[in-house]
Simulated assay, not measured.
Amino acid sequence: MTAEPLILIVDDDEGLRRSLQFLFASAGLESQSWDSAEAFLADLPAHGPTRPGALVLDCRMPGMGGLALLRLLGERGYPLPVVIITGHGDVRMAVEALKTGAYDFIEKPFREQHLLDTVEAAAGVSRDWLDRDARRRGVAERLARLNRREREVLERVLEGKANKVIAHELDLSIKTIEVYRAALMDKMQAGSVAELALLVALHREDAARG
């Protein structure tokens, strides 16, 4: 993933939004802002973010508050690290935010460098999520290109079975198995059985994580 991070800001305080955008720009970070959770949700792409980044979210706002938005994003499985900021924080609120899935909780007034460090670290986590998702989708697309026979051969290759054993189990000639095996290796873009096994294992592991 080579795209530059995009920092999203949701806060009803116009002055703070401008201040945060100036701060992020000074660090070379592009940002966008909204004055309410409702406005943010109206612009939120349903397919998820295409760039790494983080959401800087005010906890207390008119209408939907920050914790409610955080909870909603979690329910949707929207992969975006959330940094909660608030001028009315307390221990209970911080614990609730972190339990709900916030990446971090920062009280106002905050040190600018601390916020920058936190947002950049969150963007790094987001980059890892997007890279993992891209890898998972890529392997899934390759697996989807395999036909039924190639899938049958794939499973037996992963079990370490020799071509003659696979041929006997599928009632096919060894030559035919060699053709299927070469085809599936090509479609999976794997240079060896070890690489093939790693691709499939990572795909299954990522799929199990959701």
Rank of each mutant, 00 (worst) to 15 (best):
D131H: 12
E120G: 00
G77A: 04
E159C: 10
R60A: 09
V119L: 09
R111P: 05
G63F: 03
L130N: 09
L154M: 14
V91F: 07
V153Y: 06
R127F: 10
I85P: 00
R132M: 14
I177R: 00
A140Y: 03
D58H: 04
D133R: 15
A94E: 11
S173P: 05
G63L: 02
I166M: 04
I84T: 01
E159K: 14
G77N: 00
A68K: 13
Q113N: 06
E159N: 11
R142T: 04
L70F: 05
D128N: 11
D90I: 07
R156G: 05
R151P: 03
R137Y: 06
T50M: 07
D117P: 04
L72S: 07
G48V: 03
R149F: 11
I166P: 03
V82L: 04
R149G: 02
V157G: 06
L154G: 11
L57S: 02
L70P: 04
Y103N: 10
L130W: 10
K99A: 15
G48S: 08
E178H: 08
M64N: 07
V157E: 01
I85F: 01
E75F: 02
T86P: 01
Y78P: 01
V125S: 08
S173H: 12
R156V: 06
A102R: 08
I106G: 09
L158P: 02
R51L: 01
D104P: 06
R148V: 06
L55Q: 06
G138Q: 09
E178D: 15
D131Q: 15
A123Y: 07
V82F: 04
R149V: 02
V125E: 10
G65H: 07
T86Y: 05
V153P: 07
G77I: 01
K99F: 06
L116H: 04
G74M: 05
G87F: 07
I166T: 00
K108R: 15
R148T: 12
R149E: 15
L57Y: 00
G87D: 05
G101L: 09
L73R: 03
G65Y: 05
R127P: 04
A123Q: 07
D104R: 14
M61I: 02
E152D: 14
A68W: 06
E96H: 08
L170V: 03
E112L: 12
D133A: 15
W129E: 14
V82H: 00
E150P: 00
V165I: 04
R76C: 03
N163R: 12
H114Q: 13
G77L: 03
G124E: 12
K108E: 08
T118M: 14
E120D: 09
E96P: 05
R136A: 12
V153D: 05
I177A: 03
D90F: 03
K99Q: 15
R136K: 10
N147M: 04
P52H: 11
R60K: 14
V157D: 10
A121Y: 12
A54D: 05
G77M: 01
G65T: 05
A134D: 11
G89S: 08
L57T: 02
L115T: 01
H114R: 14
R151A: 10
A121S: 13
G124V: 09
V95F: 07
M93N: 10
I174R: 09
G124N: 11
S173W: 14
E120V: 11
R132D: 15
V95M: 12
K161L: 06
M61L: 02
P62D: 03
